[in-house]
Design a protein around this nucleic acid. Structure first.
Length: 413
DNA sequence: AACTATCCCAACCGCGCGGTG
DNA sequence: ACACCGCGCGGTTGGGATAGT
């Protein structure tokens, strides 16, 4: 168990970064852009390993960081996303503009976990603690199998109780309250819909290549492992809340399924800053929600960010490659049009419960007045994010492990 | 005021993955 | 096929800040 190879080099500084170091790193990246991290320390004149520089940049110096306390909406979004993604902090962070995975991880460990426990919710499974304890008392065969996998998380894999809908394939049950709490009131996201039109958020998660214990939510496989292939057009997806015995139905919209299951090649969710950008014009930089002296120094530097003729890119380049791998090529041009519609549609997990399904288990955690997107809330979260709105779009979703996590809206019922 | 406990967060660390030679 | 390297991710830790006694 030695140190990382880059740290074998002698006389490398560790610990907190000084303002001077920050300035060196910032100046270097300003001049040269992002490149090979291993060479950054030497070229920037820093006694740090490249890894440390990368971390400092990503978690602190990056100009697009929001900083400041998390809003209630952000916390709610993290809770929702964690229920689906588990401890995939980078993927969760990708849906929260200006937030880092480290920040979110810290928030989760120090705050959100505690809140959930106080509300009687198991933070690992997002199920009521009593239910989780009962499950632990009755380990199943699958429990033992999973235990051998070596997961850090405790999963009890029991045969789900089927609701009184015998035709529902058991593999499509999902107890996630997500199914109800994430319903979207489309009045805020699609003005074309009338009040009599019920909109449906489609959550179509194709099974992905690997199946890890962390891919499970609660007692069941998470959405990623429900294999919704193209042949399942018009097939309802049942998401069962076993606590209440109510099954939510999310309809496949045949008109959109084919495009949902594909990944657009033209989507390149990458932030690119060109040299003619002036950060003084960027509300996220000048908004002043930065605290601390060091940040003040950075703010000043940021205003001159990328003075030179350099283009800096960061974001999800890697996922684009994955996109290309994942795409199935058919009717590409036509799909592009569809995608352009979807990509302009904000994906906002809301706690607006539309139908008869049970209330969110976060109902105590999530203050009713602070819903993500409700008819009244279009000002709060979106204003808060200023130019980051919408909170996130489909184009932000792609990543390695969740290539086909796709969300769309359609008119149903 | 002094001490202790707890919280919070920046940074470290090991591991796995993908690219390259 | 293999080794090496760089990078990114998630878990963990150390220490400063804050709250409690």
């Amino acid at each position: 168990m030695g140190r990382h190879s880059c740290c074998y080099k002698q006389k490398l500084r560790k610990g907190l970064w000084s303002p001077d170091e920050d300035e060196k790193l910032l100046n270097y990246i300003t001049k040269h852009g992002l490149g090979c991290w291993s060479s950054v320390p030497k070229l920037a004149g820093l006694q740090r390993c490249g890894k440390s520089c990368r971390l400092r940049w990503i978690n602190y110096l990056r100009p697009d960081l929001k900083r400041g306390a998390f809003s209630q909406q952000e916390e709610n979004l993290i809770l929702e996303l964690h229920a689906v993604l588990g401890n995939r902090w980078s993927q969760i962070a990708a849906q929260l503009p200006g937030r880092t995975d480290n920040e979110i991880k810290n928030l989760w460990n120090s705050c959100l976990k505690k809140k959930l426990r106080q509300r009687g919710i198991d933070p690992n499974t997002h199920k009521p603690l009593s239910e989780v304890e009962n499950d632990k008392d009755k380990p199943s065969i699958a429990d033992k199998k999973l235990a051998s996998v070596g997961s850090n998380e405790v999963y009890s894999f029991v045969e789900p109780k089927k609701p009184n809908q015998g035709s529902i394939p058991p593999e499509r049950y999902n107890p996630l309250e997500f199914s109800t709490s994430s319903k979207i009131n489309n009045k805020s996201s699609n003005n074309n819909l009338t009040s009599s039109t019920t909109s449906t958020q489609e959550l179509l998660l194709d099974s992905i290549n690997s199946c890890r214990p962390s891919d499970m939510v609660g007692n069941y496989f998470s959405l990623q492992h429900l294999n919704y292939g193209p042949n399942m057009n018009n097939t309802p997806i049942y998401m069962s809340d076993l606590n209440s015995g109510i099954t939510s139905t999310i309809l496949h919209n045949s008109a959109s399924t084919s495009s949902i299951l594909q990944t657009p090649t033209h989507v390149k969710p990458t932030v690119t800053l060109h040299s003619n950008n002036n950060f003084n014009n960027n509300p996220s930089i000048s908004s002043g929600d930065i605290d601390g002296n060091r940040s003040t120094m950075q703010l000043q530097n940021n205003t001159n960010f990328l003075r030179n003729n350099s283009t800096m890119t960061w974001g999800m380049e890697e996922s684009v490659k994955a996109d290309k791998d994942a795409i199935s090529l058919q009717g590409e041009e036509q799909e592009e049009i569809k995608w352009s519609e979807y990509l302009n549609t904000p994906f906002l997990l809301g706690n607006t419960v539309q139908n008869q399904t049970s209330q969110s288990i976060y109902s105590d955690v999530i203050k009713p007045e602070s819903g993500f997107i409700t008819e009244d809330s279009s000002t709060g979260w979106q204003q808060h994010n200023q130019q980051h709105q919408p909170a996130f779009q489909l184009s932000d979703i792609y990543n390695k492990d969740l290539q086909r996590f796709s969300v769309a809206f359609g008119q149903t019922l």
